[in-house]
């Protein structure tokens, strides 16, 4: 499987699965820090999460500091 596939430097063939995995991590992390308004916690705690917005509060200061739109 892909674990045994290698990055061939001379031909610069980068394994597609590695790219896809990193792409998903990129999108998920960016959403959580930059744009989440309680969606992730709502998967576990339901509607209440939207009012409490724990994740938003935890990523809030970085959101301002890194230039994402906020309040």
């Amino acid at each position: 499987m892909y674990e045994t596939r290698q990055i061939n430097v001379s031909k610069s063939q980068v394994p597609k699965l590695a790219i896809i995995a990193l792409g998903i991590i990129f999108a998920a992390g960016l959403f959580v820090v930059g744009f989440d308004q309680g969606h992730v916690f709502s998967l576990v705690y339901g509607e209440q999460a939207f009012t409490e917005m724990y994740l938003h509060e935890l990523t809030h200061d970085m959101r301002h500091a890194a230039g994402f739109p906020c309040h």
Partner: peptide, 8 residues
């Protein structure tokens, strides 16, 4: 979290 994401 942001660093890991942008790092990816």
């Amino acid at each position: 979290i942001l660093g890991t994401s942008v790092g990816a």
